[in-house]
Amino acid sequence: MSQEGPTVLEGPTALEGPTALERFINGVLPENPVYRQLLGMCPVLAVTNGMKPAMTMAAATAFVLICANIMISVMRGLLKPHLRILVFTLTIATFVTIADRFLAAYVYEMSKQLGPYVPLIIVNCLIISRCEICASKQSITVALADAVGMSLGFALALASIATVREILGSGSWFGLAVLPGSWPGWGIMVLPPGAFLTLGLLLGMAEWASRRRAAKLRGSG
């Protein structure tokens, strides 16, 4: 889900993009992939009914994003503009296959639970958009920092949603009970509608907080 869509490769000016540190910091909060850019929504909604699947998904996405970003950055000189999206997806698909086989070999139960959402990382727009915006234009160090920052931001977003859903839905966090046993467990929170409602409300809250901060800054300045 890319609101901006594939941007056309820019000329040599694009080479002087943000530095590695800026890319890293941007990824975590100011340009958070979920709350700011609304990217990669399928896993955000689908696997956040508990912390464990959410964190496994975040780790798998981080692995694919980091590897794909490095790979694309290495071969950015060879990319042809009209074929680049195809090259991106094929690179990503290769790493997703590796991640999928790895999960199936070492954490079989989790791999079963995540089901089709691991292969669906291939079409996670977050990764394609990072390849397009950063890795295909900048050096390996910057691409690596960008990937790590974005993965952290993505993991944070997944964790925030999964925390709300797991605590309200089953009274536990990471499988450990945090609410008293008398907690009824809001079944709706672990079912699909709960995902939409939680994300909608959290998005609203994030927007409200950033507006308040902007208003404060304006007031004091």
């Binding site: 509608p193 939409f196 409602l197 909608g200 409300l201 609203g204 927007e207 409200w208």
Partner: peptide, 19 residues
């Protein structure tokens, strides 16, 4: 409400549709 405009309210509507 202002902060919910756009994606926020769309997701909440989707939640109700999902129900």
């Amino acid at each position: 409400p202002g902060p919910l405009k756009g994606a926020g309210i769309a997701l909440i509507v989707a939640g109700i549709l999902a129900m």
